[in-house]
Computed example of a mutant assay.
Amino acid sequence: MGFGGNGTGTAVATRTPPATAKVTRTTLTATKTVDGTLGYGDTLTVTGKSQGTITWLPGEGSTITRGHGVYSVDADRRPLLYGTMPLYRTLEDGVEGRDVELLERNLDKLGYTGFDVDKEFTWTTREAVEDWQEDLGLDVTGKVQPGDVAVADGQIASPIVSSSLFTLL
């Protein structure tokens, strides 16, 4: 037997009228006032460590997660890394410290492999950084400058900002 058919295998279309309801126009008769503040939570200051013009900002109210752009300077995206300390020096071959571990932990969480997550920036870390830079469409240097990324302790909500261009000095 056909689906909804007459036994011949041929479907029969049936129309069901749409549900309707009578609309009544009236005046609002009750209100309630409550105390409160609307906002996006705690303020977060993002410090840029490079010079240039901010050419892109995320949309209002969007949530920025690890590896995604916080803003762009001169058309280069500055991705978010999770951590508790900002990058304060160039990370490159031979550098050691907690900032290297922060970078490597983020690269690992973003799916880059071939290095140990530790405090040493080795040639294997450089190769992962080069792959990451290539994937971001940046100049492939194998080094990470303090102004190349933004660091926060977790995801951040984009504030309401103007889309006009700002200059970092």
Rank of each mutant, 00 (worst) to 15 (best):
D139G: 11
T124S: 13
V70I: 09
E101F: 13
R89N: 11
V73E: 03
T125L: 07
G114N: 05
L87P: 13
V70W: 03
D74F: 02
R89G: 14
D131E: 15
L138I: 07
G94F: 12
E120Y: 10
R105F: 03
T122K: 11
D108N: 14
E130I: 11
G94T: 11
L81T: 04
S72N: 03
T84M: 00
E120C: 00
E92H: 09
L138S: 04
L91S: 03
A75G: 05
R126Q: 15
V95W: 01
T84I: 01
Y71T: 05
Y88I: 15
T141H: 06
K109G: 05
P86E: 08
T141V: 07
V70S: 04
E101K: 15
L110R: 01
E96P: 05
D74P: 02
R77Y: 02
V73C: 01
K119Y: 09
Y71D: 01
L103R: 06
R105D: 07
A75T: 08
E96T: 15
S72C: 05
R78A: 04
A75F: 07
G111Y: 02
W132S: 02
Y112K: 13
E96D: 15
D99W: 01
L81D: 03
D74M: 03
L87K: 07
L110Q: 06
G97H: 07
G137W: 12
L103M: 02
F115C: 14
R98D: 08
R77W: 06
D74I: 01
T113S: 11
T141L: 08
E130W: 06
R126F: 10
R89I: 08
A75S: 11
K109Q: 10
G69Q: 08
T125Q: 01
T122Y: 02
G137N: 14
T84W: 03
G67L: 11
F115K: 09
L107H: 07
T124L: 09
A128R: 02
L110G: 05
W123P: 10
Y82N: 06
L81W: 06
W132H: 04
D139T: 14
A128F: 06
E104L: 12
G97R: 06
H68S: 15
Q133V: 12
E120T: 10
R78G: 01
V95C: 11
K109A: 09
E120Q: 13
L103H: 01
L103V: 04
L87R: 14
N106E: 00
D93T: 11
D99Y: 01
D131M: 15
G114D: 11
T90A: 09
D108S: 09
D108L: 00
M85G: 12
D135N: 08
G69H: 03
L136V: 10
D139H: 09
V129L: 12
G111P: 01
Y112Q: 09
D93Y: 12
R105S: 10
G69K: 02
R126P: 15
G97S: 14
V129K: 07
V95Q: 09
T141G: 06
R98W: 08
E96K: 14
D118T: 10
E127H: 15
L110W: 04
D99V: 02
G97F: 04
E96Y: 12
V95Y: 01
N106P: 04
G94W: 14
G83N: 05
E96N: 15
V129M: 09
T113P: 03
D74A: 02
L87Y: 12
T122L: 04
V70G: 03
D99P: 00
G111E: 04
G83T: 06
V95T: 13
F115V: 09
D93K: 12
